[in-house]
Design a protein around this nucleic acid. Structure first.
Lengths: 339, 339
DNA sequence: GCCATCTTTGCATACGAATGCATTAAAACA
DNA sequence: TGTTTTAATGCATTCGTATGCAAAGATGGC
């Protein structure tokens, strides 16, 4: 039915018997058009199947209404779900998401940045811990509003939205101590980024408050294999830990698998606690006690912050932390349960 | 350092002492420019931090080099991983991905389509089984090349890339029969789309070849809760199945959880086979025997088909099926093992 | 019914880059 | 060296829409 040929506002104008400007105004919220004219135009537009060309509009207005979303690995279920919610939220605000998969090779990053700028994105969200500092800096230098999701960068002057990672780590410490654990180890998230560091720090502080030292601590690099190896290694020590706090759920699953593989029972032999509360954490096979990142609120805050910065570029960057509750499930012995 | 102010080809031209056309040609592969001029221009461009504006370029050329990627739910790990690979493949070809999350409400879909067209995408990939037929039709009507990933639509004249679903189902039938199972049930993928139907059909045909009838069959709608309920229901029958083929891994995990929850052992009491071979299928907690969708090859075929159609719009649609091998793990009793 | 005020509307231009055409500079050839 | 061919460049126009400005129309007050 509709020909493949491009239909422009001029075609619509011709059919409706008005000027091109009139057509434009009908599709520009807040512009001055007589209701009668608008009706004619809309009718003509519908008849022709006309759609305003967003790209042309972007040129004129200088706003593309495109947000660049930079992510790295989607294996960790936390990110797909975050992407889903971010997309929806942005779509609701009339923005669209240009997706960039970032491999972390230097050359790739370079190209990615170029592309991000070339497409005139109005703002950027980096939804991955593994984005290099350098990249975030360059985006900011280019004057494009940027919000880091699930990662902070202290002193960078960039906005970020995270859960209260340190507090979350501390909650885990208190919970495990209250549950009677005394040899509490940590397989941390990558220590190259604040997220992993803060969770570790929180744990250690919490332990210190109870007069405990961390029994062991290894950087799991957010990598399943690394985490599994770390767990394996810890359990072969002369005095193995009686609980392991793992830096995120994604690694925690690998840790549980690794423990079971060597015949250990969770939580009878070792308690395991994760961080994120991805949907999978609630699944029967893992039933993971974990700290919930309140995704909906984090997304809301991210979008709100970004759009505010787009509207007012002079606005100061903000670092938002959202409280993360501990979710009790079966992978860790609870206070009052028999050891 | 670089001012937020927009730098255009005219600025570069001025600094390099050439015309705007010259600058354009330097950044247009295949255009005729003297090496000396190119060098001057590149130097000036670098000095100013100039990047060609993709949006402006898109207007002139009529090609945005943007691909619309429409997805629905990202809970099923198959899709995030697919998105990751699709993005990378398209980025390598110089395309970019505009991501659309489709809730399946009618109104939403309408808006989504409008947006897809408004952004002048060069092509569309629908990476979800749950996209309505209607939507795909309308994209095609608009004359935009479209490839359906992981779903076919027989007789639609649209391109699709899937694994050989029917054959996959048949492989499962043969495998389960060879393993000594006789009461083989199916919790299928959504029967509203070809993917789920073909897998079911393949299973049934395979069973028929062995002189067997399906022991039971319920539509799991690709939904965890539905699948779990179905499994529960099946096992409470007077003669429960001794094997269940589940329409995808995502549901299969739920089924295994449900079975274990009522004290059944997998595979000793019931064998479970999935479809997809998502990374999680290999994890210790499930160790799922499943049919592997060869993601890399599917992505490759999808991108290739789409780009071919973009280059030559007259090109006929094609339905590509890629062979899917059965991956043997621990969730199903194997031929030769004791029952 | 007339003038002041507020809406509508069209005209013309701008956004930033690509490209056909004509012109000029350089290279190739005799 | 002169002429033909080829490569390089600039000019002007184009893509589709938004918007300032001025003119025209509608509305209201008295």
């Amino acid at each position: 039915m509709s020909a493949g040929g491009k239909i422009t506002s001029i075609d619509v104008a011709r059919l409706a018997g008005v000027s091109q400007s009139a057509v434009s105004r009908v599709f520009t919220p807040g512009a001055s058009v007589a209701p009668k004219t608008a009706a004619k135009v809309r009718a003509a537009a519908k008849a022709l199947g006309y759609r305003p060309n967003s790209l042309a509009r972007a040129m004129i207005t200088g706003k593309s209404r495109i947000i660049g979303l930079v992510v790295a690995y989607l294996d960790n279920q936390f990110y797909p779900v975050a992407i889903e919610k971010l997309s929806h939220a942005l779509q609701n605000k009339g923005y669209h998401v240009l997706l960039f998969m970032a491999s972390n090779t230097a050359g790739e990053m370079e190209r990615l940045m170029e592309d991000l700028l070339a497409y005139q994105v109005d703002g950027i969200i980096t939804a991955s811990v593994a984005i290099s500092n350098d990249v975030t800096r360059r985006c900011a230098d280019a004057g494009i509003p940027l919000v880091m999701f699930n990662r902070g960068q202290p002193g960078s002057g960039l906005s970020s939205v995270t859960s209260a990672n340190a507090l979350g780590g501390r909650k885990v410490a208190h919970f495990l101590v209250a549950g009677g654990h005394r040899r509490i180890a940590h397989i941390s998230g990558w220590q190259g980024a604040s997220t992993g560091r803060d969770r570790a720090r929180g744990l250690f502080e919490g332990l210190a408050e109870a007069g405990l030292e961390p029994h062991a601590a290894i950087d799991g690099l957010y990598d399943r294999a690394t985490a599994a190896a770390a767990a394996h290694h810890m359990m072969q020590a002369a005095t193995p830990p009686d609980a392991i706090f793992v830096g995120n759920d994604h690694m925690a699953f690998a840790v549980i698998d690794a423990l079971r593989a060597i015949g250990l029972r969770v939580p009878q032999d070792v308690s395991v606690v994760g961080y994120d509360d991805v949907p999978m954490a609630a699944w029967g096979a893992y039933d993971l006690t974990t700290v919930r990142q309140p995704l909906a609120r984090m997304v809301e805050a991210t979008v709100e912050t970004l759009l505010a910065q787009i509207e007012d570029p002079a606005r100061a960057a903000q670092s938002i932390e959202i409280d993360a509750p501990l979710i009790l499930r079966g992978s860790a012995r609870q206070p009052g349960e028999a050891p």
